[in-house]
C-alpha cells in the first residue's frame, strides 16, 4: 500500500533538500509519495529538474510561509 512521507529538510544546507530527497526516495516503495519541506527557494527548481531527469513524477510544488512543499511520487 502506498504511503506519504514528509521529509523535513528545512534549514538543511548540507546535505541539502535535494540530497535528502534522493536518500529517502531509495527507501520508499514505487507509488509512494514524498513531500519535501525546504526553506531553500532553489528547491522549487532543482527538485523538479532531477525528478524529470530520473523519471519520477512531480505531484506538486507550493510555497507556504517561506517553506516550499515539493511532492514527488516514486515511479520506478
Amino acid at each position: 500500500m502506498s504511503e506519504k512521507k514528509v521529509i523535513d529538510a528545512r534549514g538543511s544546507f548540507c546535505p541539502g533538500p535535494l540530497m535528502e530527497l534522493i536518500g529517502w526516495i531509495k527507501l520508499a516503495n514505487v507509488g509512494d509519495e514524498l513531500e519535501l519541506l525546504s526553506t531553500d527557494k532553489g528547491s522549487a527548481a532543482d527538485v523538479p529538474e532531477w525528478v524529470h531527469k530520473v523519471g519520477h513524477e512531480l505531484v506538486g510544488v507550493r510555497e507556504e510561509a517561506g517553506v516550499w512543499h515539493v511532492t514527488v511520487r516514486k515511479a520506478k
Partner: peptide, 10 residues
C-alpha cells in the same frame, strides 16, 4: 555528484 552542482553547500 548526485545533485546539480559539485557540492551540497552552494
Amino acid at each position: 555528484y548526485p545533485i546539480g552542482r559539485v557540492h551540497s553547500l552552494e
